[in-house]
């Protein structure tokens, strides 16, 4: 009984995080400006990372941890590069 409730709770959390990613995608598509899209992409990455962790808890393995860490790293690098591009029109000066 507890196990069932637990897995439902985690599924619900996963759905909420997926909905958060959906909101970010909507903002990414709608814009209206480039900075909105980049902000949405950053939020998308963060929610995706948290979704990975939730999967990890649900399946009881720590394997998802590395995936989450890599998503966080890539999200940071990507957003910084895009923000820099927005500021100057080039990534590496």
């Amino acid at each position: 009984m507890t196990a069932l409730l637990f897995s439902w709770a985690l599924t619900l959390a996963g759905i909420m995080l997926a909905a958060a990613m959906g909101c970010a995608v909507y903002r990414m598509v709608r814009g209206p400006r480039a900075q909105d899209r980049i902000l949405a992409l950053d939020s998308f990455y963060a929610s995706g990372m948290l979704l990975m962790l939730t999967f990890g808890i649900k399946s009881g393995t720590t394997l998802y941890f590395e995936a989450a860490l890599v998503i966080a790293l890539l999200g940071f690098a990507g957003t910084v590069a895009l923000a820099k591009f927005l500021m100057r029109g080039e990534v590496i000066e």
Partner: peptide, 17 residues
């Protein structure tokens, strides 16, 4: 903990909208 965190993240994302 996970539900509260997910709800808060969803709130933040709705803020985007």
């Amino acid at each position: 903990l996970v539900l509260a965190g997910a709800a808060l993240t969803l709130t933040g994302a709705t803020g985007l909208l």
